[in-house]
């Protein structure tokens, strides 16, 4: 059964954290079509989280067409997301590793690395929108 985590320091609203974790797990292939998500009570029991938050997260996933609730049974993954192929994953990871080593070598610290990635990401996203 899939397990959620909760990061109190991230500043991301808890319901969004749950949504993002499901999306991420789908992309990485940890969740597949037909898998059942834990029930609201189970999530509440493991995370100490407000059940309304879980309901809200599941509702959003439902609206996005990622999951569907089957009455009396639970919530199941319906989306067929193209998971990142293992080969692609390994290749991307290797190239990023190279880049991070390069950045280290140029004297960048962790914080600057993260800032740089965020900045590039924003730029790329802006190109996409425009």
């Amino acid at each position: 059964m899939f397990r959620f985590r909760l990061d109190g320091r991230s500043g991301v609203p808890p319901y969004l954290q749950l949504v993002q974790q499901v999306r991420q797990a789908l992309l990485l292939g940890y969740l597949r079509q037909g898998d059942q998500l834990p029930t609201v009570k189970e999530v509440v029991g493991t995370l100490t989280i407000n059940p309304n938050t879980v309901v809200k997260a599941y509702r959003q996933l439902e609206n996005e067409g990622v999951v569907a609730a089957k009455p009396g049974q639970g919530t199941f993954i319906t989306a067929e997301v193209e998971a990142v192929a293992p080969g692609d994953y390994a290749r991307l990871r290797r190239s990023l590793e190279r880049w991070v080593r390069d950045a280290r070598g140029s004297g960048l610290d962790d914080e600057t690395v993260t800032a740089l990635i965020a900045s590039v990401r924003t730029d790329v996203r802006a190109e996409g929108v425009a």
Binding site: G8, P14, K41, V44, I49, P51
Partner: peptide, 24 residues
């Protein structure tokens, strides 16, 4: 939280420890 999930009770909870509240 389990009680909220099971009994559908409405909760009013006071606290000055704000950090605990966001998930709850």
């Amino acid at each position: 939280m389990s009680a909220v999930a099971e009994d559908e009770v409405t909760v009013l909870l006071s606290s000055h420890v704000i950090a605990d509240l966001e998930a709850v």
